[in-house]
Amino acid sequence: MTAARFAFTFTVNADSIDELGHVNNIRYLEWCLDAASRHWESLTPKHLRERYVWVVLRHEIDYQAPAFLGEELQMETWVSWSKAAQSERCYTLTRPSDGKVLIRGKTRWCLLQAQDHKPIKIPPEILNLFHPNT
């Protein structure tokens, strides 16, 4: 299954730094969630975003190296699989200056109907956005 990938770069700001002088672990999770939202919004028309919402079932992050104030980072995300109402989204955060992978993560999501918040099988019109070559 080929997945549609989404990436963006940003610079670490002072609000992201903890008392140890590097990026706080919670900030990495926030960046993953931001990547998921940006990817969803970049691929879906407004009517789909109004009809469906995603909720998190599970997060998993492997921290491999720290990031520091002022560094430029690149976040990449893609949906690795989808089945029934669930999908798994992967993340890789790298430091382009040296190619170092800082985190690898996964989130399991569940698709809900926006109106009543009940789980719904992921429709083909959404599957085709995240897995265009299936």
Rank of each mutant, 00 (worst) to 15 (best):
N13Q: 15
E60I: 04
I126E: 02
E60C: 10
H117W: 13
Q86F: 04
V23P: 00
L43K: 08
W109N: 02
P96F: 01
E125A: 14
L102G: 00
A85L: 08
A114M: 10
H131K: 13
L57Y: 03
H22A: 11
G21R: 02
D18H: 05
S16I: 00
S37E: 15
S80V: 07
T9Q: 12
L69F: 14
G21N: 01
E76T: 13
P123S: 09
T92W: 01
E76V: 13
P96I: 10
W81S: 15
W54M: 12
R5Q: 13
E50D: 13
I126F: 05
E125F: 07
L43Y: 06
E50V: 00
R27Q: 15
A14R: 04
V12M: 10
D62T: 14
V53Q: 10
R108P: 02
W54Y: 11
H39E: 13
W31P: 00
E60A: 15
S16L: 04
R89A: 07
E71W: 01
R108D: 09
E19K: 08
K118Q: 15
P45K: 04
V101S: 14
L111S: 12
T94I: 15
W31L: 08
T94W: 00
T2F: 15
I126P: 01
K118S: 14
G21S: 06
I126S: 03
V12N: 06
T107F: 08
A14T: 04
A36H: 00
W31Y: 10
R104A: 12
C90G: 06
F130C: 03
V55H: 04
T134N: 12
L29Q: 05
H117Q: 14
D98A: 12
R49M: 11
M1T: 01
Y91I: 01
H131Q: 11
A35Q: 05
E30H: 11
F8D: 03
V55E: 07
V56L: 12
I61V: 10
A35G: 05
R104V: 08
S82W: 04
F68H: 10
G99K: 05
D98K: 00
T44N: 13
L112T: 09
I126V: 14
E19R: 12
I122L: 14
P123H: 07
E88W: 02
Q115W: 12
T107K: 01
L69E: 11
R58Y: 06
Y91M: 08
D15T: 06
L93D: 01
S42G: 09
P124G: 08
K106G: 08
E72P: 01
K106S: 14
A4Q: 13
P96N: 06
T9I: 03
T11M: 12
Q74C: 14
A36I: 00
R89Y: 07
L33S: 03
V101N: 01
H131V: 11
T11N: 11
Y63W: 14
L111T: 05
A85P: 07
W81Y: 12
Y28N: 06
S37V: 10
A4Y: 07
G21W: 02
E50A: 11
P132G: 08
M75N: 00
D116T: 12
E60M: 13
A7H: 04
E30P: 05
L29N: 08
L57S: 03
S82F: 07
A4G: 02
R95W: 09
T107G: 09
I122H: 07
L69P: 00
R51Q: 15
L43H: 03
G99P: 11
V79F: 02
E72A: 11
R5P: 00
L102H: 04
E88M: 13
A36N: 02
T92Y: 00
N25C: 13
Q74G: 08
